[in-house]
Nucleic acid binder design. Sequence first.
DNA 1: TATATTTATGCAAACAGTTGCATAAATTAA
DNA 2: TTAATTTATGCAACTGTTTGCATAAATATA
Lengths: 343, 343
Amino acid sequence: MSVTIKDVANAAGVSPSTVSRVINKKGVISPETEEKIFAVMKELNYIPNKTARSFASGSTMAIALIIDVADVRAYSNNFFNNSVFGIETVAHQNGYDLIITNGRRNDIEGSMENIVLSKKVDGIILPETMVKTDFLRKLDEMDFPYVILGQPPVSHQWCNWVDINNVQGGALAVEHLLDKGYRKIAFLSSGEKEVFNRNRIKGYQEALNQKQMPLFPDYIRHCQSSVESGLAIAKEMLTGENPPDAFICSDYYLGIGVKRAVAQVGLSIPSDIGLIFFDNSPVAELIEPSITTVDIDTLGLGQQAASILISKITDKQLGGRQTLIGTKIIERESTQRVKENRI
Amino acid sequence: MSVTIKDVANAAGVSPSTVSRVINKKGVISPETEEKIFAVMKELNYIPNKTARSFASGSTMAIALIIDVADVRAYSNNFFNNSVFGIETVAHQNGYDLIITNGRRNDIEGSMENIVLSKKVDGIILPETMVKTDFLRKLDEMDFPYVILGQPPVSHQWCNWVDINNVQGGALAVEHLLDKGYRKIAFLSSGEKEVFNRNRIKGYQEALNQKQMPLFPDYIRHCQSSVESGLAIAKEMLTGENPPDAFICSDYYLGIGVKRAVAQVGLSIPSDIGLIFFDNSPVAELIEPSITTVDIDTLGLGQQAASILISKITDKQLGGRQTLIGTKIIERESTQRVKENRI
DNA sequence: TATATTTATGCAAACAGTTGCATAAATTAA
DNA sequence: TTAATTTATGCAACTGTTTGCATAAATATA
């Protein structure tokens, strides 16, 4: 049917093992033999059969990304998109194929069976939200390489993980708003349980403390990730006692909610109220006023995760790597309390 | 090392072939034997080795999606996201794994080698933008299953492809605007070459003809996919002779550009100017006024593509399938020239 | 009861590479 | 010149599963 290593070997007058060694650059081969074999491979259009190689060598040269639809929205619509590109790019550079598999809520065991135990891939990347301690323990027992996107439970804090530096993001947002003259900064989170929200709040609190600003407990509110939720809570806060003069939101749905609330109570952004949301979605620069964001490098997140995973596959002795990907403020109109002095 | 089919066979007192037949539900097996084997498999935690199965059977139970970063934006940010979920879901339901591989502009041959010729997958899905006629011809010669997302060149119009019904989308947009009382409808495309733009324009023209409305050639403008481009061209049209009173845009960047242009020339949406853009991005309902969109079912696109591909893999005799996925109008404020009579 | 058919299972080859070990040839050291 | 070492290659086993063919046992048919 198709050309095999034997055909190449016969045509080149050598044994299949020699051809194999040329392909894999293993062992010592005389320059003439090597040249000859390359020529024959080209002539016969020989492409090694990946399945056979995996089978014989025991390594699949593939990694899997396990995802859950729910996660995709956790960071943003671009999260998946960008991270996948990052992962795929690095994987490809290193000769690995990328398999995408949906964790299908709570069926992480299914993924385990489908991908890990069936020897389909050499390593996996999985989001923190899908982590179950048992599952990680099994992986550890098997010495199976994995990297977590996000920060895992404390029991596994020394495993390989990569996360956005959400603490820093929260702090940067506060510092930026203080810089711009806002003094009463509220934080709307998209959920109490999410580790990333907790970290952002941590950064928010630390920055306020460090700048010796008062910390109002009821300025931290956990909402759902929706425009309606953001609108309702922001409106309540703005019309209550001790209203804030700025909001940091965990995602753009909440941000849009705040924007509407501000309009509804007759105030305006940025002169009365400052607004920042996390994740530099295209929405931020398309609406009016444009919104200052905390940019999170999801592409870098994916690249880093893939890179660490591949290192671990290559060298199983490698110790844990914990990486935080820095965030940065992208300044737009929504935080310009004082008109900018443009040069 | 790990449990193999032999271990199961030994433990159950049968031959490996019998175990294999149980796993694959092939041939006739006595109920007692089957039961026994299932019990042993469970007891030993036996998981078949996928690589070995692929190797022996010649089918990998995997499909690949070949993408190019450029395409991701062609339809929208959600295109990739949603389509991938659609593909993955259907693939998984049928026992297939999904491999994502970046076509890396113009290196479709590289993908061919990496994925197709190396026997890594049983079939591929690839976007029309990556299609090269030679490449398809090679696939045809090998009788290798593939499905195209979008409409391929005429030479391959009878191969398997799935596309959004862009002609219908263009027509629906026109009909909706006419319904709402707009009479001079312009179309801003995101590029002259793109097949989807040409189809949308075709639908636009057909609908206008059918409704016996005049067709102004300079109402069709090809822009770049950017806010700036949309703004510039819309402004030019609005301030020129014979200004339109409505715009259909190929994507939301152009749509936002039009929105800004309308504001800059002192008109307003929807009372003076109607606006619709393609692809129901979240942006559409977050900005003010909210924008009527032509919704394209990218999830369905992916599902359908995977479904057809798998049918083709299963039955190579199967003839070509050409599928158009219907679009629909999602009505919002930007096309309410006359205040809606709410009940 | 003998023969034909069906049912259930085993045997062994095949899939296409990789790799440890053996070995012949070439080179270097003694 | 012989022995030791290095270099280059081949041999053959091995990876885990599938599957065509053979066959024994059970059942149906004559």
